[in-house]
Design a protein around this nucleic acid. Structure first.
Lengths: 100, 100
DNA sequence: GTTAGATTTGACAATTATTGTCAAGTAAAT
DNA sequence: ATTTACTTGACAATAATTGTCAAATCTAAC
């Protein structure tokens, strides 16, 4: 499966847009967008939805990929990560309102 | 399923320990431990393993619960949370080394 | 092989989130 | 009404994230 960054870079190039064009619309330096595309930095949630608009990408698909990477980031190099994911899934399906 | 905080509080009380006893061992104020137990604050990973030692709780079980809460925290009030969880699960199972 | 434009890199600054302290506030037990 | 355990909330300290900037690299065209 393609990473968020890969999806963004591919679509940007397909549209013939430069980092400078897109980063201007996002109101950030090209450096950050470059890093986001290469997976060196995480985007913010807001940037993801803006990018979907700018690049005409399916917002849901992009968000799902983005969120899944955030999740994976949380449990990176945790042996119990998979098990934690499963517990999280069960909990969310159960219909928990959650703390605070 | 019991929350991390509930597990900790129940075991602490069963052992007859006061917040002050346990928080001293964790080297934090009782206020924080109180909040952790009531789910108002998240513990750090280190605090979780220390708590497992102090309260003689199964470290793996506690960590899984703790991590799953961290995951759920990331996707709280995200409509696409469940889908993101599933993508994350597939990705992790696939055996990805991940970015950076 | 030099220039020009695009991207990348890394040092560091700004901002935001997390983790903590402290002091005052409840509540229950004596 | 004191004492003890715990809770609450304002705020301080620390740490993580997000950003800028300037210089470096890369590529393609002259």
């Amino acid at each position: 499966m393609k990473t968020t960054g890969e999806i963004i870079r591919e679509k940007r190039e397909k549209k013939g847009l430069l980092l400078r064009h897109v980063s201007a619309q996002l109101d950030i330096d090209t450096a950050i967008l470059s890093k986001i595309e290469r997976g060196e930095r995480k985007a913010t949630r807001e940037q993801i939805t803006k990018l979907a608009d700018i690049l005409e990408l399916d917002k849901e698909t992009l968000l799902i990929q983005y969120l899944s990477e955030k999740i994976l980031y949380e449990i990176q190099d945790e042996d119990l990560g998979i098990q934690a994911l499963k517990v999280a899934e069960k909990t969310i399906k159960y219909g928990v309102t959650k703390n605070k």
